[in-house]
Amino acid sequence: MNGDELAGIVDLFGGLTREELHEALAELAFKRGDDFDPDTAQADVTGALEDYYLLAVDRDDQRVLVPGPVAFPELPERATDLPHILDVQPRSVDREELATVVRERLESDAADADGDRARYLVDVTYDAEAWAPVELDDVRETLADE
């Protein structure tokens, strides 16, 4: 599943834990008559986090995944049924909190980035500034030095 689809699923709820998202993906596969491969699902989620389609925030003593700054959330086929299937209460995350989390994550990633990854992260900084109230000029400068 691509990053935009994963973002669409978590957006249905405002955010999901990894376990809840895993359960949602299993339920979605069942509803669609598809085989569910937990390893593939885990790899898809990890990739979406790495590429900023999803962002992990700490919320109510748990880590919750929310749509990230590069995502254009879209719902996969049959996903609209998920809120009726999963026992998950809607969540909300403040934009200021998201700004803090994305800044910290980009600063950390920028410290180790080079080449293609650094160029990708520069693009992410622009997306993040449009997505949340955050200024990332200093992160771009760090990435330009790489």
Rank of each mutant, 00 (worst) to 15 (best):
D145P: 00
F30N: 03
H84A: 14
A118Q: 01
A110I: 02
Q42M: 06
D137W: 09
G15C: 09
K31F: 09
A113R: 00
L121P: 06
G47D: 12
D114G: 12
D123Y: 02
T80Y: 07
V102R: 01
L12E: 11
D138W: 06
E23Q: 10
R59C: 01
G8K: 12
D87C: 02
E77A: 01
P69L: 06
E135K: 12
T142A: 15
D61Q: 11
Y53F: 15
L75P: 12
L136N: 08
E135T: 15
R91F: 00
P83G: 06
L136A: 04
V57D: 07
E97D: 08
R78W: 10
D44R: 11
L106A: 04
L28W: 13
F36P: 05
E96M: 05
D35S: 07
T17M: 10
F36Q: 07
D60S: 12
N2Q: 11
A41L: 11
A41W: 10
L28R: 12
D35W: 01
D4E: 09
R103I: 02
D145V: 01
G15A: 03
R91G: 11
D58S: 14
A99K: 09
L16I: 10
T100F: 00
P73V: 07
F72K: 14
E141V: 13
L82K: 03
V134K: 11
P76E: 06
L25S: 03
E141T: 15
T100K: 10
I85T: 11
A130K: 13
A29L: 07
E19I: 04
F30I: 03
A29K: 09
E19D: 15
W131D: 13
I85D: 04
R91L: 12
T125G: 01
Y126V: 14
G15W: 02
E50P: 00
V134T: 08
E141F: 04
D81W: 05
D94S: 13
R59F: 11
A111G: 07
R95C: 02
L106G: 06
E74D: 08
V88N: 05
D137I: 11
Y52W: 11
R91S: 10
G68H: 07
L55R: 03
L86Y: 01
T40C: 05
D81I: 02
K31P: 00
L49N: 06
Y126G: 14
R91W: 00
L16R: 08
A118E: 05
T100G: 13
E141Q: 15
W131L: 00
G47H: 13
V102L: 05
A144M: 06
Y120F: 15
D94N: 13
E19Q: 11
L54V: 09
E74N: 07
D61V: 02
A56Q: 14
A48T: 02
T80Q: 06
V101L: 04
R140W: 07
D37G: 09
L136D: 13
T46G: 04
R32E: 09
G14N: 01
R91E: 08
P83T: 01
N2R: 12
H22R: 15
D112H: 12
N2D: 15
G115E: 12
